[in-house]
Design a protein around this nucleic acid. Structure first.
Lengths: 148, 148
DNA sequence: CATAAAATTAACGTTGACGTTAACGTTAGC
DNA sequence: GCTAACGTTAACGTCAACGTTAATTTTATG
C-alpha cells in the first residue's frame, strides 16, 4: 500500500492540504503521481521528504525560498542514486559530487554558527537565571529576618 | 551624549527607520523620549534593548508576537530594578520575582530543545557528508584504475 | 447506483512584517 | 535666516505563506 492521498500526508506531516499543494505550486515539493481521475498519490518516500522540509523549516527557521537551496542537496543526492548507471560522463559526475559536497559544507557552516549563537544566548539566559535566583534567596532571607 | 536619533539607531542595529517605528507601533519596542519638536531621542540602553530584540528574532526565529513574551522577562527585570524602593508589598514583589523565574525557565527549556534538535540535524548532515566523501574517494580510486 | 465523503482547480481574502510615497515640520551649517 | 538634510505622521503598497470559499469531479460505501 505505497499509496497515500493528500489528506493522509497532511495528517502525518502536520500540514494542511492547501499547504501541501502550495509547496508543490512553488516548487519545494515535487508533483506526485496522479490517479486516472487526477488525484495526487504519494509514496512513503514523498512523505519522508516532506517531513524533512517541515523539519528544516521549523528547526532552522528557513523561508520557503531558502528551502529550495537546502533541498537541492537532497535532490542531487537522490538524482545521484537514480542515475548511477546512466551515460553521464565521469567528469560531469565528479563535478556534481564535489558540488554536492560544497553545498553540504555550506549548510553545515550555517548550522554550526547558528548553534553556537544559540548556545551563547542560552548561557546568557542561564546567567540571568542564576542572578535572579540568588536575588530571590537574599530577598527571602531578608523577609525572614523581618518576620523574626 | 546619551542621545541618539532614529537614523543612528537604525544604522547601529541594522534596521530601517520604518522598522523601528513599526516595532514601536506594535509594542515590542518602547516609545522613547521626544525632543521639543517631537523627534525621537534614544538612549544607549534603548539601543542595547533593540539589539536584543534583533538578536532574538534572527537567532531564535521568533515572530514579533513571540518576542513580546520573550521580552516580558527583560521588561520585568528592568521594572524590578526601577521600582526597587517603592511602595509595592513584599508579597507582590515576591510574586513578580517567581513569575520572572518561571518565564526564564520556560525560555530556557525552549532554547535547550531547539539547540538539541539543531544538533541532531547537524549530526545527520555530518553523516551524509561523510558518506558522500567516502563515495567520492571510491569514485576517484575507480577512475585511477581506469586510467592506468 | 445513489449519495455522501473526499479530492480537484481557481480565485479571492488575510496576516505579518515591513517598503514607499506624500505632505509637512525640525535642525544644523554656512 | 535660508536651505539642505533629516525628522514626523499617515496612508497605501507589497510579498510571503498560507486560509477560505465555491464550483466541480472522483471515490468509497451502504
Amino acid at each position: 500500500m505505497d499509496e497515500y492521498k493528500i489528506d493522509d500526508v497532511a495528517r502525518e506531516c502536520g500540514l494542511t492540504k492547501r499547504t501541501i499543494r502550495y509547496y508543490e505550486e512553488i516548487g519545494v515539493f515535487p508533483t506526485p503521481e496522479r490517479s486516472e481521475g487526477g488525484i495526487r498519490l504519494y509514496t512513503r518516500e514523498d512523505i519522508e521528504y516532506l517531513k524533512k522540509i517541515v523539519n528544516a523549516k521549523e528547526i532552522l527557521g528557513f523561508s520557503l525560498q531558502e528551502l529550495v537551496s537546502y533541498l537541492s542537496v537532497s535532490d542531487a543526492y537522490k538524482l545521484h542514486h537514480q542515475t548511477y548507471h546512466d551515460m553521464t560522463s565521469r567528469d560531469h559526475r565528479r563535478q556534481q559530487l564535489t558540488h554536492m559536497s560544497e553545498m553540504l559544507e555550506e549548510q553545515l557552516q550555517m548550522l554550526r554558527t547558528k548553534v553556537e549563537k544559540m548556545r551563547l544566548m542560552q548561557q546568557e539566559l542561564e546567567q540571568t537565571q542564576k542572578r535572579l535566583d540568588d536575588f530571590i534567596r537574599k530577598f527571602d532571607e531578608e523577609t525572614d529576618s523581618l518576620d523574626s
